[in-house]
Design a protein around this nucleic acid. Structure first.
Length: 875
RNA sequence: GGGAGUUUAGCUCAGUUGGUUCAGAGCACCUGCCUUACAAGCAGGGGGUCACUGGUUCGAGUCCAGUAACUCCCACCA
C-alpha cells in the first residue's frame, strides 16, 4: 500500500472516535481498581466550543488518558450547566424575535419554550468535545436541571434553611436591569468608565440665593435624594448645620445631615444622599433614619416615585436632566470624570444598586473548613500562587445572595402563607403544607393558601454541588457510584471562577459530604491573541476550533494549544502553534512510513544497530522518568515538550538515522523488531496528547486483535537506565555535529565521504565507529600520533581530530581557537581561585570540590590541545 | 485604596534545596541543501551585563532590601 507523504487527520479522526465509543472504553463502572475521577466544568447548556474550552478540555483529556493507561478506573463525567441568567436571556431574545414578550407568557409557558430551546440547541458543545477527542464517559452526561440533580439542589436549600444558615431580608443588592434580577457580588465586574462629574447646587430652604453645591456622577438620582450630608468637622459648612435644602426640579425639602463618612476633600465636600440607590447612602440612610425613595423600575427606567421622567431609561434621563438642570441654573459645572462602574458578568449591563427582598446564605461558618483545606493543601491549587487570593476572599467572604428574579432555574422551595409574613421552606408543596398545618393547627390551611416564591436559585447554588450531584450523592449518598468515584481527583478550570465555583464546591464538599470534592485544582490561563487581547467576537481574533480541527486536525490543535501553557499562565494564541502541531503529526507519520518501508533480513543485528537500540532504549527510559515527574507536578507543557523532543530529535533525527540501512540494504530482523517496539512505546507516551494519530499508527505498525486500542494500552513502566551509555552517545553526537559543522564551514558536500583520524590516544569512541561513519559520512577512522599531511584539526572537549583539509582559512581558525582558549582560561582561573580559597575548601561540600577539580583538569587538557592546534597552524 | 504576581535570547517560557561544564528549550531568524520517511523537511549557525541599585556569601537568574515597569485579584469614595 502506498502511503501518502503527508498525514491526513480528517480521514481517521471520526473513525477512531466511533470505534472508541463502540468499544465503550470511556465508560466506567465501579470495580476493585483505584478510581480516577474528573468532573468536567460544565459549560453553559447554550454554549458553543471556543478556544478556552479547547485548552481546558485538552488538559483534562491529557490527564484522564494518561491515568486510564496507567490502569486507573477512569471516569470523566461530562455535562452542562443550565446557566440561568445566560440561558434565560437567550430564550427571551429568541422569543422577542418571534414577537413574543416574556411578560405575556405564564411561567409554565415560558419554561416550555425554554426547555424546547434547550432540547434543540442545548448540549451542542458536548458533541463538539467529541471532535476534540475528549474521552468522557458520555453515559454519565449530567445536567444541573435534570430531576435527580434538582432534587438535590432543593434539598440542600432546605437543609441549610433548617440549620438557620439561610435567611431572607431586604438588602442593597446588585440589580441587573437587563436581566431584571439581583446578582451576587461575584457576578459584578467593576470597570473604569468615562463619565462626568456634575456639580449641582441645591437651594437652602428659606433663602433666595443661598446654595449648597454637591458633586455627583449620576444626576438622575437626585430624584431619589432624601438628604444632603456634610462632614461635621467641615468648617466651611458650619452655617448649614440644622438647615434643609430643596431638591432641584422636584422641589422636595430634605435635611442637611452630619455624617463623618463624608470626605471633606472629595468634590465639594457635600454629598447628596440617595439611600435606595447607593450602598453607602443606604448605610447613611439607616443611621439617620432617612426616607428610602426607590425611583427605579426593575428595567432601569424611572419609577413613579421619581415624579419626573417616569418610564424613561436612566441613561437617557441622565443626559436630559443635566440639560434641564443647566437651563434652570442648577448646574455649576460638568467635568469629565473616570470612575468605577459595576457591570453584570452575564448581560454586561451597568449594575444599579437597589433595595430588594432576597434570600441569603450565611457564609461565615460554612466556609471555614474550605479555607482550612486549601491552606493545609489537602486541596491543592496549581499554581499555588492562587492560595493567597483564595485565602483573602474566604477570610472576607460575604453572605451569598441566592435568589434570582428569573424563571429558568430551580424555583426556591419557600412557600408563603397568603395574607401573612409566614414562610415555610420544604422540598415539596405537600411538605410545606404539612409544616404550615403543624405550626397553625387551629387554621384550616389548604394547598392553595400557600404561594411558592417565584424566584429561582443562583446557578452557582446548583453547580456548587456538581462533583457530588453528578453521582447522585446528595439524594443517595450510599449509592455505589458515589462511594466509589467521589471524591474526585483533579479539577481543571479557569481562575476567573475560583470564587464563583471552586471555592463554593469546596465549601459544599465539606458541608454535605464531610470530604473534599477533589484533590487538585489546576487553574488554566486565559486564551488571548498574540497581542495579549482577550478573544472576542467583535475583535474577530477568536478562531473557530472546529475550523481549526477541519484544517489541521484535532491532534494538531491539542498540542498547539499545549506547547506553551504552563498552569496559570495565559496562552498567547497564534495559528503557527497549530501548524507546529500539524507539522509534528506529519513528522511522526513519516517516521512511521520509514519504519513500515524497511525490509527485515533474517540476519543477526550488527554493531551499529545494537549500539543505536541500546542508546534509544536508555534514552526513552530517561525521558519517561522526566515525563512522569512533569505529570506529577502538572507541568503538562513541559511533558509535551519532552515527548516532542524525544520523538523528533532523539528518535527521528538520531535513532532512525543510525539504524536506517544504506540504500538497497536491509535491516536485521532484531533491529527491525526493536524499532517497532520503540515506536510503539513512543506512541504510548504521546497518546494522551495526540490520541488520534497514535491510535491510527498503533494499528498501522502491528497487527492488532479486536479491542486492542492504544487508548487502553498500558503506560510504559519506568526502569533504570545506563547513564554511561547516554553520556557516550552525547559525546558521539558532539563529534558528528562537529564534523558536519566542519563540512558546512568549508563547503564540503555531505555526499563526499571523508577519512577521520583521532589524535588522542585514550578515547571512548571505538564502539561507536559504525555510527560515526554512517551519520558523518566517514570512510575510515584511524588513530594517529601526529597530524597527518593535508588535514586540519578540530577538537571535541578533550579529544583531538584530523580531517582532510580543503583550503583552510588560517586567520579564521586561529581566531576561533584563540577565542576558545580565552574562554577556557577564564574558566580555569576562576576554578583555580576557588580551589585556592581556604574558605571555599572548608565550606563547600565534597562533591562541589570534586567537580571543580574535574573542571580544572578538563580545562587544562583542552587548553593543551587548543595550544597544540594553534602551534600547528602557525607553521 | 489594599493585596498578590511577573520582569531570563526577536516571541512564548524552563531554570527545584545558591556551586560559571546553567545561561537553556520551542518558535522565529541567518546560511547551505529537493541527501534513498518527511521542503509541513534535513544539516549548520548567530543571538541574552538573567529589569535596575545595593546587600548577604568563598560563590547569586537563584537569598535579602530598595527602585522602576507591567499584569491580575479585591475594594461602593459621591
Amino acid at each position: 500500500m502506498e502511503l501518502s507523504k503527508t498525514y491526513d487527520p480528517a480521514s481517521i479522526e471520526d473513525k477512531w472516535y466511533a470505534s472508541w465509543m463502540k468499544a465503550r472504553i470511556f465508560h466506567a463502572e465501579p470495580d476493585n481498581r483505584p478510581s480516577y475521577t474528573v468532573a468536567i466544568p460544565p459549560p453553559n447548556v447554550t454554549g458553543i466550543l471556543h478556544m478556552g474550552h479547547v485548552l481546558n478540555n485538552t488538559i483534562q483529556d491529557i490527564l484522564v488518558r494518561k491515568k486510564r493507561m496507567q490502569g486507573f478506573n477512569t471516569c470523566w463525567v461530562p455535562g452542562t450547566d443550565h446557566a440561568s441568567i445566560a440561558t434565560e436571556a437567550k430564550v427571551v431574545a429568541l422569543l422577542a424575535k418571534q414577537g413574543i414578550k416574556k411578560s405575556d407568557l405564564s411561567r409554565d409557558e415560558f419554561l416550555e419554550h425554554a426547555f424546547a430551546w434547550k432540547e434543540k440547541y442545548g448540549g451542542i458543545i458536548l458533541q463538539q468535545l467529541r471532535k476534540l477527542g475528549a474521552s468522557c464517559d458520555w453515559d454519565r452526561t449530567a445536567f444541573t436541571m435534570e430531576e435527580r440533580y434538582s432534587e438535590g439542589v432543593i434539598n440542600v436549600f432546605c437543609e441549610l434553611y433548617d440549620k438557620g444558615l439561610i435567611y431572607r431580608g431586604k438588602r442593597m443588592v446588585n440589580w441587573d436591569p437587563a436581566a431584571q434580577t439581583a446578582i451576587s457580588d461575584e457576578e459584578v465586574n467593576h470597570k473604569d468608565t468615562n463619565g462626568f462629574l456634575y456639580h449641582l447646587r441645591y437651594n437652602i430652604s428659606g433663602t433666595e440665593d443661598e446654595y449648597v453645591t454637591i458633586a455627583t456622577t449620576r444626576p438622575e438620582t437626585i430624584l431619589g435624594d432624601t438628604a444632603i450630608a456634610i462632614n461635621p468637622e467641615d468648617e466651611r459648612y458650619i452655617h448649614l448645620h440644622g438647615k434643609t435644602a430643596i431638591v432641584p426640579l422636584v422641589n422636595r425639602e430634605i435635611p442637611i445631615i452630619l455624617d463623618s463618612y463624608v470626605d471633606k476633600e472629595f468634590g465639594t465636600g457635600c454629598l447628596k444622599v440617595t439611600p435606595a440607590h447607593d450602598t453607602n447612602d443606604y448605610e447613611i440612610g439607616l443611621r439617620h433614619k432617612l426616607e428610602f425613595l426607590d425611583i427605579l423600575n426593575p428595567d432601569g427606567t424611572i419609577s413613579e416615585a421619581g415624579q419626573l421622567y417616569v418610564g424613561e431609561d436612566r441613561f437617557k434621563v441622565r443626559k436630559q436632566i443635566a440639560t434641564e438642570l443647566e437651563e434652570k441654573g442648577h448646574l455649576v459645572k460638568q467635568e469629565p470624570y473616570t470612575h468605577s462602574v459595576g457591570y453584570s458578568e452575564r448581560t454586561k449591563a451597568a449594575i444599579e444598586p437597589k433595595l430588594s427582598m432576597q434570600w441569603f446564605l450565611d457564609m461565615k461558618d460554612i466556609s471555614k473548613p474550605a479555607l482550612e483545606a486549601v491552606l493545609s493543601e489537602e486541596v491543592r491549587l496549581i499554581p499555588s500562587k492562587f492560595i493567597n487570593t483564595y485565602r483573602y476572599w474566604m477570610e472576607n467572604v460575604r453572605d451569598w445572595c441566592l435568589s434570582r428574579q428569573l424563571w429558568w432555574g430551580h424555583q426556591i422551595p419557600a412557600y408563603f402563607l397568603k395574607g401573612t409574613d409566614e414562610v415555610f421552606v420544604a422540598p415539596t408543596a405537600e411538605k410545606a403544607l404539612q409544616k404550615a398545618r403543624e405550626k397553625f393547627p387551629e387554621r384550616d390551611i389548604q394547598a392553595e393558601d400557600l404561594i411558592q416564591d417565584p424566584d429561582v436559585l443562583d446557578t452557582w447554588a446548583s453547580s456548587w454541588l456538581w462533583p457530588i450531584g453528578v453521582f447522585d450523592g446528595v439524594m443517595d449518598p450510599e449509592n455505589k457510584d458515589f462511594t466509589y468515584f467521589y471524591p474526585t481527583q483533579d479539577l481543571v478550570t479557569a481562575p476567573e471562577i475560583l470564587f464563583f465555583w471552586v471555592a463554593r464546591m469546596i465549601i459544599a464538599g465539606y458541608q454535605f459530604t464531610g470530604e473534599k470534592p477533589f484533590t487538585n485544582v489546576y487553574l488554566t490561563g486565559i486564551v488571548r491573541d498574540h497581542l495579549r487581547r482577550k478573544m472576542s467576537k467583535s475583535l474577530g481574533n477568536s478562531p473557530d476550533p472546529l475550523e481549526m480541527i477541519e484544517e489541521y486536525g484535532a491532534d494538531a490543535l491539542r498540542v498547539g494549544m499545549m506547547f506553551s501553557s504552563p498552569a496559570g499562565n495565559d496562552l498567547l494564541y497564534k495559528e503557527e502553534l497549530i501548524k507546529q502541531g500539524r507539522n509534528f503529526a506529519n513528522k511522526i507519520w513519516n517516521a512511521f512510513r520509514l519504519i513500515k518501508g524497511l525490509e527485515a533480513a533474517d540476519t543477526p543485528a550488527i554493531e551499529r544497530e545494537l549500539a543505536a537500540i541500546r542508546w534509544m532504549e536508555n534514552r526513552v527510559q530517561e525521558a519517561l522518568q522526566d515525563i512522569n515527574a512533569q505529570f506529577e507536578e502538572f507541568r503538562i507543557s513541559d511533558a509535551l515538550m519532552s515527548v516532542y523532543r524525544l520523538i523528533w530529535e532523539d528518535f527521528c533525527s538520531w535513532y532512525l538515522e543510525m539504524i536506517k540501512p544504506d540504500q538497497g540494504e536491509q535491516i536485521s530482523r532484531p533491529a527491525y523488531d526493536a524499532s517497532i517496539k520503540l515506536f510503539e512505546r513512543l506512541m504510548k507516551i504521546l497518546h494522551p496528547f495526540m490520541p488520534f494519530i497514535t491510535e491510527e499508527l498503533w494499528h498501522g505498525i502491528s497487527e492488532r486483535s479486536k479491542g486492542d486500542f492504544i487508548s487502553i494500552a498500558s503506560w510504559p513502566s519506568v526502569g533504570t537506565y545506563d547513564q554511561q551509555c547516554l553520556e557516550d552517545i552525547a559525546l558521539v553526537k558532539e563529534l558528528i555535529t562537529a564534523i558536519r559543522g566542519y563540512r558546512s564551514q568549508y563547503q564540503l558536500s555531505n555526499r563526499e565521504a571523508l577519512p577521520l583520524h583521532i589524535g588522542t590516544a585514550d578515547h571512548p569512541f571505538q564502539p561507536y565507529y559504525p555510527i560515526i561513519r554512517k551519520l558523518a559520512n566517514i570512510t575510515s577512522i584511524a588513530e594517529t600520533a601526529a597530524k597527518p599531511e593535508g588535514t586540519n584539526s578540530f577538537n571535541v572537549r578533550v579529544f583531538e581530530f584530523f580531517i582532510p583539509a580543503a583550503e583552510i582559512d588560517v586567520e579564521a581558525e586561529i581566531e576561533k581557537i584563540q577565542k576558545q582558549i580565552d574562554r577556557k582560561e577564564r574558566l580555569l582561573s576562576g576554578v583555580k581561585k576557588k580551589l585556592g580559597n581556604d574558605k571555599f575548601m572548608n565550606n563547600a561540600p565534597a562533591n562541589v570540590i570534586a567537580n571543580e577539580q574535574k573542571k580544572l583538569s578538563d580545562a587544562e587538557s583542552e587548553i593543551g590541545i587548543l595550544k597544540t592546534r594553534l602551534a600547528q597552524l602557525d607553521n
